[in-house]
């Protein structure tokens, strides 16, 4: 099974970038691809990708880079500092991937993208930079999905 997971909080500005990317992908994904959204508790990723062999994750990041910057990761190695921020989540994406690795609960293939956010305040809208980056990430993932991975 191929699974795309968008992570974020729809009410916190650019934290929603992963959700927005997932919605773009859902609209144009090839048959057989499942798209889901996660809000908040990233530990539930371990259950969300349970049974999926090929997984894409898209999340907002806050590393100090220019807003809208996109970084790609491969889950076969630790994700690094850019994905370490906790924000409103108890565990960072990097933490959950390492926990999954320790428990042998990682998908066979795990790839993902981080979208640098500009603002994460409660009630803030998605910034233009994050919105453009979400579309770029969606197009890249869709390209890979239609090309067969």
């Amino acid at each position: 099974m191929i699974l795309v997971i968008g992570i974020g909080n729809a009410d916190r500005g650019d934290d929603a970038a992963g959700l927005v990317a997932a919605r773009h992908i859902r609209d144009a994904a090839p048959p057989g691809v499942t798209v889901t959204e996660l809000d908040g508790d990233q530990l539930t990723l371990l259950d969300a990708w349970d049974g999926a062999a090929d997984v894409y994750v898209v999340d907002a990041v806050c590393s100090g880079a220019e807003p809208g910057t996109v970084c790609r990761f491969d889950g076969s190695a630790p994700l690094g500092a850019r994905f370490k921020h906790r924000g409103t989540h108890i565990f960072s994406l990097a933490d959950v991937v390492e926990l999954g690795r320790a428990l042998h609960r990682l998908p066979v293939r795990l790839r993902g993208y981080g979208i640098e956010g500009a603002a994460f305040e409660l009630g803030a809208p998605l910034s233009l930079e994050a919105e453009a980056a979400a579309r770029t990430v969606a197009e890249q993932i869709l390209h890979e999905l239609w090309a067969g991975g």
Partner: peptide
């Protein structure tokens, strides 16, 4: 951390995640 604990005690951490 819990991640380091999980590496040596996966059954215990799995039990905690099951509860959660």
């Amino acid at each position: 951390s819990g991640i380091h604990l999980a590496r040596d005690h996966p059954d215990a951490v799995a039990r905690g995640l099951r509860l959660k």
